[in-house]
Structures are given as C-alpha cells and as structure tokens.
Nucleic acid binder design. Structure first.
Length: 519
RNA sequence: GGCCCUAUCGUCUAAUGGCUUAGGACGUCACUCUCUCACAGUGGAAAUACGGGUUCGAUUCCCGUUAGGGCCGCCA
C-alpha cells in the first residue's frame, strides 16, 4: 500500500504548470497557496514544468510562467530557471526516469500494451454513453499474451500503455475535503503512457512527486478525480504518495471554471500586468479567493499572509472572481504607495499612451525602474518636445494618486498636462450660472492671475487671490468651475489651483485666453 | 448519463450547538465634505436554498431534495 509521506520530514510542495498557454490567474493562486504553505512550514517550493504533451508545450509559455512568478514576487527554491538537486524539473527531460518505471510496470504485468485504435475507442465510448453507462475501456487488449503484443508491435501497430485496474474502493484523504471514496472500477484500465518514454500526466506526476520527495500536493479541484488514479499507479509501482489538498476553483461570473478565453474576466496574468494592476493587490485579492484570516482584516502583504496562513481557514467552495473588489484593492495599494514609486510605475504607461518619451543617458541622476543598461535622464513631451523632469512628472501624478484605480488609466487622466485641451464651450458653464456670466468671470480670472508674480505661482497663492472673489459671488462654483474646465478641458478632474500650479503661469493664462476664444 | 465536490447578503466571507436584532469588506443607495471627479466619514437596503431528523436549543451535526460546479482524453 502506498503510504502518505510523514510530516517529520522537510515540507516540499510544488506547482506543476504545463506550458501550453499564457500563465493563468488560477495557476497564480495555486502557486500562491503552495508558496504560503511552504513558507509557513519552512519548506521548499518547487516549480516543475509539465511538458509531456510535446505538441502543445512551448518555451515561450515557460517564460510567461517565470514572468508571472517574478511579478508576483513568488520566489521558488527549485525548478524552472533555478534548477536543484532533483534532476531536471522539466518533464520532457526526464524520459529515462519514466522509462525505468514504465518498463517495470510492463514487466510485472501491472500494465499492458493496448492496440485499440482511437476510432474503435470512440465508437465504444459513444455506444456506452448512449446506453447511459459510464464510458469504460473494455479491457480487450488486456488478454493479449506477451508474444501477441510483441508481434503487433513489430508489425508497427500503434499502441499505448494501460494500467490494469482491479476493482476496489480507493480512499483519498484530502487535507481540505476529508476522506473521499472512489470505486475505481468506474475508471477501467486507464492509459498511463503513449510509450515507455512518453508518460501521460498521471504517471509522470506520480513518479516525479515521488522522485522529488514532494510531501504535499496542493492543486486545483479539477484534479480531484485524478487522485485515485494516481494512487493506483503509485500502488502498482510500490511508491509512497504525498498528502493531497485540492483547492476550490476560481469561478467566472457564470459560476463556471475560469477558462483561458473567458470574456467576463481576464484570465491571463499578463493582462493584469498590462492593465496596471499591482502585484500586491493581485496577491492580496487572490489570497482572499478561498482563504481568510478569520477576523475582519483584509489588507495583507505577502509576509503577513505567510504569517497568518493556515489550512484550516481555507474555503471548500469555489469563489467568483469579482473584479470590482480587485480594483478596490488596487486603488488602495496605489494610494498607499510612495509618490516616487508610483511615478516610476506610471512611466511605461505614459510612454505607451504616447504622451512622453524617455531620454536615455548614462548618468544615474534619476533612479527609474526601467529595463535598460542606460538610465533615464528625463522625458520629452511628445507633442511639444519640451523637457519633462522626473519631479515634474511626480508632481502631475500626485494629483491623481487618489483617483487612480489602474495604472493604465494614468494617460487619460494626465493628458491635459502634455497637450492642448479641446472641449465643447457648453461645459465651461457651471450648472448654477448663465452663459452670459462667463465672459466677466474669465476676464476677472485672466486679469487677476496676470498680476500674480511667477515666482509666487503656487496653489496657496492662487487660492488666496481667487477665493475671496469666489466667496463674494456667493457660489464658489461660478468662479471655480469655469477655471477648472478652462485649465483641464474636462468635466471631472483634479482641483483648479493644483492644475494651474503644475501647468505654470504661462500655460494657465494661455488656457484662459483660449476659453475666451472658444466662447 | 455516471462518479465526485460544494451550498450564509449581488460578490468575497465571519460566526465550528447557545454570547446573534447573523458580523465585516467590495458593490449599491442616501447623507456629510465639495466647483467636478476621487478620497474620507456617517447611515441604509441586502443572506443562513428547501424538507426532514438529532438536541432543551441549530447557520453550525445527520439524511434527503434542489441548485451550482468539477471530472469521465492517446490534455494537464
């Protein structure tokens, strides 16, 4: 009987993604829980690439795994680009190991070659389904003698390797779900390999988990029914098995498993990076999809998650991925961040929005998180070709730190600082005033602001010269709204004094004049 | 269709037999702040799927029903 590995040894967990597509947000959560589990027990977190499906596996998808893990700050101890003591961590490079085990199974007659064609099997399956029966392999090739098999192989007949499954009840002991009984007769003789050195998922998984001394398998619930199959394989091989913990699934709005091309929710981690989500926010959010600390705290850093993580607090049912809550987390973390860091993070999005271009150089005056051997000396306004310093950029972004939900939105919010503003004249008018009152207001603004000394041009000064008049009008909006729209061109924006300060005297006056022309 | 898992506000969840008029957060609504947006603050609406047991007492334990989901690949 396969024994569960004992807990007195070092905890070793693994995440085993298959590089057959961009790294999925669900895999990210599985990785997170594995990571937390490993850290909690001072164990090792291993990344094993499950690329036994050679036609679908691509190196670029391995890179997407690495990129996502880096971004999420989920450090691992062995595997992928890090290597380690337990052989290659890429299944495609472990053929000899699998071959050894598979041959053992064949030799002991626990497994056999099956020569049934896919068409035959398909037909059998359909007829059983039509009768309302579970589709189970007939066991036809099980009766083949060694000689018959050898003969067929020699003749070049296509074949696969099946495990002999003896009817029995297999009890899976899941750390989360408890004991689950399976009648394995319902599986039939399962296919475990395409050939001696081409194992299928279940076989490779059992062998690797054993060889890599994995103590706990933490994976998605979609693997629950694979567990008794793997138990059977381990039993036939005489290998011990790890303990299992199957995580509930992440669901889409329709309550179905979140899939790669789901229109309602972005499934790829790269989508979140692109839209300007912060890794802290994503980690915090996905941790709470199926886990909670048991009290009302909600904000958790990775370190705090490690501190408080416990299997007992894991949820048994699937959780819908609700984007508004993620957005709230993201906004929260943006507001908490230092302005320098936020500015650095916004730069790529501003460049992408076509507002600015970085000016490269070798000086190290400005520390920017930017991927190059050169440092960014500053920026150039794409439209006006004016130089923009990091500090100017920071000043602009500071006005929107409270308003930003996702970094990718920054371009739209701050474009008014980089290019001329266009707006319909109607929006210049505050809702509680008449169009006819506007010329006088603009005139007053222009005259008053012209008199402000350029070196005094700051928010406080502007407020002190304009607010008395705003108060005198009895309705501040009559002065402040037209000012704000004139300088921002928008119905919704940061405050007028702040914008005017950042814009500077010259541009502010220009925009007021422009408002007069627009009228 | 078979096997398996799950079931508290719209969503994520707390309450592991009594301390509960079922708590928090997001979202939503109202109000405060306010030129707008956002932030912040205050308040409101909002849930134990249903039916049986067990028990002095069930959100909590058991059974059934219903609903949702997963798996049933020579994918992982």
């Amino acid at each position: 009987m396969p024994k569960e590995q004992k807990l007195n040894q070092e905890v070793r967990v693994r995440m085993a993604p298959s590089p057959t597509g961009p790294f999925h947000i669900g895999s990210a959560r599985t990785a997170l829980f594995n990571y937390l589990f490993a850290k909690k027990f001072q164990g090792k977190f291993i990344i094993r690439i499950e690329d036994t499906d050679r036609t679908r596996s691509k190196v670029e998808w391995e890179e997407s795994i690495q990129e996502a893990l880096n971004w999420l700050r989920l450090d691992y101890d062995e595997g992928l680009e890090k290597g380690g003591h337990f052989g290659s961590y890429r299944q495609s490079e472990r053929s000899e190991i699998y071959q050894k085990y598979t041959e053992k199974l064949l030799f002991s007659r626990e497994a056999y070659y099956c020569f049934c064609t896919p068409a035959e099997l398909e037909e059998h399956r359909n007829s059983q389904l039509a009768q309302g029966l579970a589709p189970i392999y007939s066991g036809k090739c099980r009766k083949l003698t060694k000689e018959q098999s050898a003969q067929k192989k020699e003749a070049g007949d296509q074949c696969v390797i099946r495990l002999k499954v003896t009817p029995q009840t297999v009890v899976v002991n899941d750390l989360l779900k408890g004991q689950i009984e399976y009648d394995v007769a319902l599986f039939g003789d399962i296919v475990i390999a395409k050939s001696v050195d081409e194992p299928l998922y279940n076989l490779a998984c059992v062998i690797d988990d054993f060889e890599m001394k994995i103590t706990h398998v933490i994976r998605g619930e979609e693997h629950l029914t694979n567990t008794p199959k793997q138990f059977l394989i381990a039993k036939a091989l005489g290998l011990d098995i790890p303990q299992y913990l199957h995580l509930p699934l992440i669901l889409n709005q329709q309550r179905a498993k979140l899939s790669k091309r789901d229109p309602s929710v972005a499934a790829k981690v790269s989508d979140y990076i692109e839209q300007g989500y912060l890794p802290e926010a994503v980690v915090n959010f996905i941790a709470f999809l199926g886990w909670n600390p048991g009290d009302t705290r909600e904000i958790f850093s990775l370190e705090e998650l490690i501190q408080d993580f416990s299997v007992e607090k894991l949820q048994k049912s699937g959780a819908i991925f609700n984007v508004p809550k993620l957005d709230w987390f993201n906004g929260y973390y943006i507001r908490q961040m230092s302005l320098d860091k936020l500015t650095n993070l916004c730069v790529p999005y501003l460049v992408k929005a076509g507002l600015i271009s970085p000016l490269w150089g070798k000086s190290e005056v400005i520390p920017l998180v930017y991927d190059s051997n050169f440092t960014v000396l500053g920026f150039e306004n794409n439209k006006t070709k004016e130089k923009v310093s990091f500090n100017q950029l920071a000043k602009i972004i500071s006005l929107y730190q409270e308003r930003l939900k996702k970094l990718a939105e920054i371009g739209e919010l701050v474009e008014l600082f980089f290019e001329e503003v266009e707006y319909p004249k109607e929006i210049l008018k505050w809702k509680k005033m008449e169009m006819a009152e506007l010329p006088a207001v603009l005139d007053f603004l222009l005259k008053t602001l012209q008199e402000v000394n350029e070196k005094d041009w700051n928010k406080e000064k502007l407020e002190s010269v304009l607010m008395p008049e705003a108060e005198r009008l009895g309705d501040r909006g009559k002065l402040l709204w037209p000012l704000r729209v004139a300088v921002s061109g928008k119905m919704a924006s940061a405050g007028p004094f702040e914008i005017a300060e950042v814009l500077g005297k010259e541009k502010t006056l220009q925009r007021i004049k422009k408002a007069q022309e627009v009228l």
